[in-house]
C-alpha cells in the first residue's frame, strides 16, 4: 500500500493540495489571523514557524474544519472546504497541540473507536489498525490503558489517531512540544517518514525543527505570513544580503579602518561590533554575489592596518527569523 501511495504522489507532485486565500479569523477585537494566503503542494512537508500567539493553532483549526474563518476561502484537493466540511474532513488527519485522550480507554480500543467515527469500512478496519499500530511503534502497548502511557507514547497514539482512515493531508500542531529529547528525536523521524507518503503541515516555534523536518517554511507573526520559502531560500539571504565580519589588531587605526570601509561601494550598515584591548571588530552587510573580502584585505594591507580576521557569515535561519519577527513587531508597534 505504501508503494502505491508513493507512486500516486509522484504523479501528483506539482498539484496544489491545499489553497488558502485571504483567510482572516477574528475573536472579538483580536485579529488572530489577518488575510493570510498560501498554497501547499501534494506531498510537501510545510512548516508553520512563529512565536507563541502568532496564530499557528488558529490557522490549523481552520484547515481542519474545527471552526470556519471569519472571511476568506480554503480549498482542499480542489474542493471548497466549508461547502462540504464532512467530505473535506475525511481527507484530513489532525493532531491538536494539547491532547490528553481518554485515560480509561485502551490504545487499540481507542483507535478502533476513531476508525468507526472516521468511517473506515468494517472489512478493512482490522488490518488498517494493525498497520497503524506497528508503524507508530504502538504494537507492544496496544492493550494498555492510555492513562498509564508516557507522554511520548501518548503523542504516538495522537499521531496514530491522525492517520486513521488514511487521510491525504496530516496536520500536526507542535507535535514535539513537551517531550523529552529522546522522544523528540523518535517523533521527528516518524514525522519525516510519514511525510514521504502524504502532504503534511506542522507548526512549531522551534527553529532547528523546521530545517530538520520541513521542505518549506511559512513564517507567521501576529496573524500574518511574513516570509515563506524553502529553508535554503530563506537562509540564502534575507533580502539577498549577507554579512562580512572584519577584525583588526590595532585600536589606534579604528578611524582609518572605518573610513576605508565607508569608501567601499555596496557596503551597508557598517558598525563596530566589539572592542577589546587592542582588537576591534566590524560588521557590514553587502548584497549577495558581491564579495568584498579580497578588496578589504588588500586595502588594509596597503594602509598598514593589521588584519586579524575576515569572514563572510550567512545569516542563519535563526537570525532571519529574529530579524523578521523583530522588524515586523517594531513596525506594527509604530503604526
Amino acid at each position: 500500500m505504501q508503494v502505491e501511495r508513493s507512486a500516486l504522489l509522484q504523479d501528483r507532485k506539482n498539484e496544489v493540495m491545499i489553497s488558502v486565500q485571504n483567510v482572516s479569523k477574528h475573536f472579538g477585537q483580536i485579529k488572530a489571523l489577518d488575510q493570510i494566503s498560501f498554497e501547499v503542494k501534494c506531498g510537501e512537508i510545510l512548516g508553520f514557524l512563529g512565536p507563541n500567539g502568532a496564530g499557528k493553532t488558529t490557522a490549523m483549526r481552520i484547515l481542519t474544519g474545527f471552526f470556519p474563518p471569519t472571511s476568506g476561502k480554503v480549498w482542499i484537493d480542489g474542493r471548497e472546504f466549508f461547502k462540504d466540511p464532512r467530505q473535506a474532513k475525511r481527507t484530513i488527519g489532525y493532531l491538536p497541540e494539547t491532547l490528553n485522550l481518554y485515560p480509561d480507554m485502551r490504545v487499540r480500543e481507542f483507535l478502533k473507536f476513531v476508525a468507526e467515527l472516521r468511517q473506515v469500512a468494517g472489512k478493512k478496519r482490522r488490518s488498517h489498525l494493525d498497520e497503524i499500530l506497528s508503524r507508530c511503534g504502538l504494537w507492544n502497548v496496544k492493550h494498555r490503558l492510555i492513562g498509564f502511557l508516557s507522554k511520548g507514547y501518548r503523542q504516538r497514539v495522537g499521531l496514530a489517531q491522525a492517520l486513521i482512515g488514511d487521510p491525504s493531508v496530516v496536520i500536526l500542531d507542535e507535535p514535539t512540544s513537551g517531550l523529552d529529547p529522546k522522544q523528540i528525536i523518535e517523533i521527528r523521524s516518524l514525522i519525516r517518514e510519514l511525510g514521504r507518503e502524504r502532504t503534511l503541515i506542522l507548526s512549531t516555534h522551534i527553529l532547528p525543527e523546521v530545517s530538520m523536518v520541513c521542505d518549506r517554511v511559512l513564517i507567521i507573526n501576529q496573524g500574518k505570513v511574513v516570509a515563506s520559502g524553502t529553508v535554503d531560500e530563506l537562509e540564502a539571504g534575507l533580502k539577498e544580503q549577507h554579512q562580512i565580519y572584519v577584525a583588526i589588531g590595532d585600536i589606534g587605526k579604528k578611524e582609518d579602518a572605518l573610513n576605508l570601509l565607508h569608501s567601499l561601494e555596496g557596503a551597508e550598515q557598517i558598525c563596530i561590533t566589539d572592542e577589546k584591548a587592542q582588537e576591534v571588530g566590524f560588521s557590514l552587510i553587502v548584497p549577495k554575489g558581491l564579495d568584498l573580502r579580497p578588496i578589504i584585505s588588500r586595502l588594509f594591507v596597503e594602509h598598514q592596518i593589521p588584519l586579524l580576521e575576515i569572514r563572510s557569515a550567512r545569516l542563519s535561519l535563526e537570525e532571519i527569523f529574529m530579524k523578521i519577527v523583530v522588524d515586523e513587531t517594531r513596525s506594527g508597534a509604530a503604526l
Binding site: 481542519t64 484530513i92 494539547t98 491532547l99 490528553n100 485522550l101
Partner: peptide, 11 residues
C-alpha cells in the same frame, strides 16, 4: 481530555 477538539475535526 481535549478530545472534543478531535471530535470536531472528524467527519
Amino acid at each position: 481530555h481535549q478530545t472534543l477538539e478531535l471530535l470536531f475535526t472528524y467527519p
